[in-house]
């Protein structure tokens, strides 16, 4: 398997219960050692290639997530870790949860699980790296990194209407 350069990770906790967060941290520690792939967990979005998000998105952190995403340089990939980040999980029905991360930014890889195990997180990151390579190639050809144009489908609280894709 070819591992692309040395991709750095930015980790943000959406509204996760911490379960997936500590598993993300655990996957960088000696037992699982994500760092052997040259992957480093960074705190600065401008250094990062891979955006790991745990937990669903709520009305407070929506802007934070979008801002972090826009600060990352292209090409970039987003990995949604845990079932909450994928579609809201057990908290889907909570009044303060918008839903999965894909409601506010485009997601490339979904890692389900409650909590997602470190093995599957590593697997998800490695899959994301392949996508990162593809995006880089597209950029080299002068194309936009993403093949599909992503549209936002947020339902605001109180409104029944859902915007069309």
């Amino acid at each position: 398997m070819k591992i692309s350069k040395s991709p750095w990770i930015l980790h943000y906790d959406g509204s996760s219960c911490n379960g997936c967060d500590i598993e993300v941290l655990a996957s960088t520690t000696p037992r699982y050692d994500l760092e052997r792939f040259g992957i480093i967990n960074t705190g600065d979005p401008k250094h990062a290639d891979v955006f790991l998000i745990t937990g669903g998105v709520n009305y407070q952190n929506r802007d934070v997530v979008q801002q972090l995403y826009s600060q990352m340089p292209d090409p970039k990939v987003v990995v949604a870790v845990g079932i909450c980040a994928c579609d809201g999980g057990v908290f889907k029905d909570c009044y303060n949860i918008i839903g999965g991360v894909d409601k506010v930014i485009p997601v490339d890889v979904y890692v389900p699980g409650c909590a997602a195990r470190p093995e599957s997180i590593i697997d998800g990151v490695v899959k994301a790296l392949a996508i990162l390579d593809k995006k880089r190639e597209r950029m080299a050809q002068g194309l936009v990194p993403d093949e599909k144009v992503w549209t936002n489908t947020i339902v605001r609280p109180g409104s029944q209407e859902k915007q069309e894709d």
Partner: peptide, 8 residues
């Protein structure tokens, strides 16, 4: 608590 719904 900045909630999406007021006084949930």
């Amino acid at each position: 608590f900045r909630t999406g719904v007021q006084y949930p």
